[in-house]
Design a binder for these strands. Structure first.
Length: 485
RNA sequence: GGCGCGUUCGUCUAGCGGCCUAGGACGCUGCCCUCUCAAGGCAGAGAUCACGGGUUCAAAUCCCGUACGCGCCA
């Protein structure tokens, strides 16, 4: 019998969803979809001081924007009941406590009365003697009488999990293979805090088991805690899930990806004009590849081809240049109607949504293949709707060139009554103008472009003139000439 | 400090003992197309496979060390 695949993403709501978390979410989602399994979202809010509802919202918004969905998990704090109970850890404390009591009753965990000062001292001594700074397990051996005395004195305690003292724990990682840890080198982890609540490592084990998670795919930083977690599963009489530890995502300087490298939040990428599909595709490839090094994937391909075994063990550097290329690829594949919908917020922000002027659909198709980011769009089309702003260099080089003014005025005259004011006809007419005056193409084409757009680069010339229409073109030709004095 | 993980073109990677004079992609350079910028097409530069030892007829691929980077223990 094969059990149904269940994966999860379990963020701490202490900030936004960053790139690394987004990739972890994606991989869990892809793996679940690939195996017709289920993907669960759980909120690990045991850090009461740093957890905020705003973070939950930001994280869920990010996942939704990425186009990923989940089968179970939080909607909001008050309506989050599912087949496995609430999906916020702070609402599950009673469950954790029940399992804690069981471990203590079975002698697999014990109360530790050491104070912070004692632990600090222990660590200091260990360092002095060049021993690893580990908890020495002194409360493990407390007699019943000593414990009773401590209780009577009202001493605060944490609870520690008893690690086996011999043998080794093997983590059979889906990405890294078998990784072995000597048990006697692991310390007795605190599973219950003095402030009366579960620690991350404990709550995580209980939840993953009770929620039926079969595959835990998470960041590299959790690999070292995995042997302890495996021993907790065993102590509770449970079968551990399959673990897979993903390598980290680095910044361009080889350090951990951080703010100083640019955007780290998924939502910032949305705001910069990246498409969700770009993010899915790029993130999938950051640490995973197919044997043929395929670059562009449809979602269906991503789902059928994704495989934990194909994941990279070494860290990957986040490359914005490649991200932009990929976004350009997908923007070019986007139909014009959809492109307009996507560009709307960016155009609105630039004051380019709805002003009178050429048909937006036509204008966008003129420059379609140049868009890398949705946020590029306003800048590339603004001169269709706003007064020309001359690039000083273009103005000096092209319009101040000898004869340019005469060309502009001559053309304005030639096009005054010219019909039809259309691409091909305009091209013919203007080429004839060039020939009649014994000029070179560039001596005419370039000044026109700068006169009507203010810059040296832009859409294909004659079609652009058609789209602008006679009035705008004539006005701009004359205006540019006038500026030349 | 201990334990663990990692190391193939600038970057993402293919590679699981012979097909590798190391393949693809981004980026870069040049050419073509051309009214500009793109897009597209073609060509090219770019990796002594971190280093040193083994094993083997044969190693980027297996083993052992070293270095460097990273993570966890705080």
């Amino acid at each position: 019998m094969t059990t149904k695949v269940r994966t999860r993403f379990a963020p701490s709501p202490t900030g936004y969803l960053h790139i690394g978390g987004a990739r972890t979410t994606l991989y869990n989602w892809l793996f679940a979809r690939r195996h017709q399994g289920e993907f669960v979202l759980r909120i690990e809010d045991t850090d009461e001081v740093r957890s905020t509802p705003e973070s939950v919202t930001a994280i869920l918004d990010s996942i939704k924007w990425l186009g990923l969905d989940w089968d179970e998990g939080p909607v909001d704090e008050n309506s989050d009941k599912g087949p496995f109970g609430p999906y916020y850890q702070m609402k599950r404390v009673a469950t954790y406590r029940a399992h804690l009591d069981r471990l203590i009753a079975e002698g697999k965990a014990y109360r530790c009365y050491c104070t912070k000062e004692q632990l600090d001292e222990m660590r200091r001594l260990a360092q002095l003697e060049k021993r690893p700074p580990r908890y020495d397990g002194r409360c493990r051996a407390l007699t019943g009488a000593q414990r009773a005395a401590n209780e009577a004195a009202g001493m605060k305690f944490s609870v520690r999990f008893k690690m086996p003292t011999d043998g080794a724990t093997i983590v059979d990682d889906a990405i890294r293979g078998k990784v072995s840890f000597e048990n006697k080198l692991q310390q007795d982890l605190v599973i219950w805090k003095t402030t009366d609540g579960p620690t991350y490592n404990f709550a995580c084990v209980i939840d993953d088991h009770l929620m039926g998670i079969t595959h835990v795919t998470r960041g590299d930083e959790h690999l070292s805690n995995t042997p302890s977690q495996i021993q907790m599963y065993l102590a509770l009489g449970w079968q551990p899930p399959v673990f897979a530890h993903l390598s980290m995502i680095m910044g361009p300087d080889g350090g951990k990806l951080s703010k100083r490298h640019g955007a780290t939040s998924v939502l910032e990428y949305r705001d910069q004009g990246y498409l969700p599909h770009t993010m899915r595709n790029y993130l999938a490839l950051l640490g995973w590849a197919t044997p043929d090094s395929q670059q562009l994937f449809t979602d269906a391909e991503l789902i059928t081809k994704f495989d934990l075994a194909g994941c990279q063990k070494s860290p990957a550097t986040f490359d914005t240049v490649k991200l932009q290329w990929m976004n350009g690829e997908y923007l070019r594949q986007t139909g014009i109607e959809e492109l307009i919908a996507l560009a709307k917020p960016f155009l609105e922000k630039a004051g380019l949504w709805g002003p009178p002027g050429p048909d937006l659909k036509t204008v966008l198709s003129l420059e379609h293949e140049k868009f890398k980011l949705l946020s590029d769009i306003p800048r590339l089309i603004e001169f269709f709707y706003k007064p020309v702003e001359f690039d000083p260099k273009a103005f000096d080089k092209v319009l101040k060139a000898p004869g340019a003014k005469e060309v502009l005025l001559g053309l304005a005259d030639a096009l005054k009554d010219f019909a039809p004011f259309e691409d091909k006809a305009l091209e013919e007419r203007i080429r004839r103008f060039v020939a009649d005056r014994g000029l070179k193409n560039g001596q005419v084409f370039h000044p026109i472009r700068v006169a009507v757009t203010g810059r040296t680069e832009g859409p294909t010339l004659f079609l652009m003139l058609e789209v602008m229409g006679r009035d705008m073109v004539l006005a701009r030709l004359k205006d540019a000439a006038a500026r030349l004095g």
